[in-house]
């Protein structure tokens, strides 16, 4: 049992940056180029660990601590999330609320760190990040409520480990709506195209990149790593909703889970390659549509009586 927990943590700690690498490779393929190596995110993090950190004289310890707090909060959220057939190390009735709130904590400190620099660019990024974050949180909660209602459980591990196995047959359309809504939320929360472009090189056009404009060295490494883990957690949550099928063979299930994740990363890469970034004032509409999808799903449940 302990070995399984250890394995869960190992996957949680080690695997996430690879997803970014896969997204990068997919985008390169669509652009007709070779693209950065799959392990590029690891190289970047390794390099940043060997650089000094530069701080603004305006900043306080909040700026320094924020990357660590946010990464620790995201990793702590990871201990609630089942991966493949691995039960999470900790589970309890109502842990989904903590799961969302840990992400809120991570966002809170990063936003404060941005304001700590006193730069107007980062203030702008902080304002946008906080705005979109609070709008995506409501959809997140509604989606989780739907999943809880379908699986009759308030614990992530029970919802994702078998709780939804019969739901696809009974209320498939609901789950489709939830998946679409979740996917939009994933794009917003992880600042992917079409909400934000992690690869633009202008300070003004970004949300998440501009918020960490002043971080350097190991702090930036933590930020990048935390972002990767967040994407990984969202992706594995979505994958667990989409594919509830299990053969109950430990190795095959795990391998299949990783395969799903990789396919999912490729999917994000395809979205990024085929879409342009939205104008900033259109982003709320996207968030709103995610919310509407979720509301529709909820209505369908009430009408069908899936509860």
């Amino acid at each position: 049992m302990h070995i399984l927990l250890l394995l869960h943590l190992t996957i949680l700690f080690v695997f996430p940056p690879l997803l970014l690498g896969i997204i990068g490779k997919t985008k390169a393929f669509f652009a007709g180029r070779i693209g950065p190596p799959l392990l590029q995110p690891y190289f970047d993090i390794f390099k940043l660990m060997h650089k000094e950190s530069v701080y603004s004289v305006t900043t306080n310890w909040i700026f320094m601590a924020a990357p660590m707090v946010s990464t620790a909060a995201i990793l702590a959220a990871g201990t609630l999330m089942p991966l493949a057939d691995f039960k999470p190390p900790i589970q309890f009735w109502g842990d989904m609320v903590l799961f969302v709130y840990l992400f809120a904590l991570a966002r809170f400190v990063i936003v404060l760190a941005a304001l700590d620099t006193g730069s107007s660019l980062e203030g702008m990024g902080a304002s946008r990040e906080a705005t979109f974050g609070c709008l995506s949180e409501i959809t997140m909660f509604l989606n989780l409520t739907i999943l809880a209602l379908l699986s009759r459980s308030l614990s992530l591990s029970e919802i994702f480990l078998g709780g939804l196995s019969s739901s696809w047959l009974q209320v498939g359309p609901v789950l489709i709506l939830v998946v679409v809504s979740f996917f939009l939320i994933l794009l917003v929360e992880n600042s992917r195209v079409p909400i934000d472009d992690p690869e633009t090189h202008l300070e003004l056009t970004m949300i998440h990149e501009v918020i960490v404009l002043d971080h350097s060295g190991i702090d930036l490494a933590y930020v990048l790593y935390g972002k990767a883990v967040k994407l990984f957690l969202f992706a594995s949550m979505l994958v667990s909703v989409i594919i509830t099928f299990r053969v109950h063979d430990f190795l095959i299930d795990t391998a299949f889970f990783f395969f799903e994740l990789i396919v999912f990363a490729v999917l994000i890469g395809i979205v990024e390659s085929t879409m342009a970034r939205l104008r900033l004032n259109k982003v709320p509409y996207l968030l709103f549509s995610a919310f509407i999808f979720s509301i529709f799903g909820f209505t369908v449940i009430l009408v069908r009586g899936g509860h």
Partner: peptide, 9 residues
């Protein structure tokens, strides 16, 4: 980018 070289903001 294939050499890990990238321009940043």
């Amino acid at each position: 980018s294939r050499f890990g070289i990238q321009f940043v903001a």
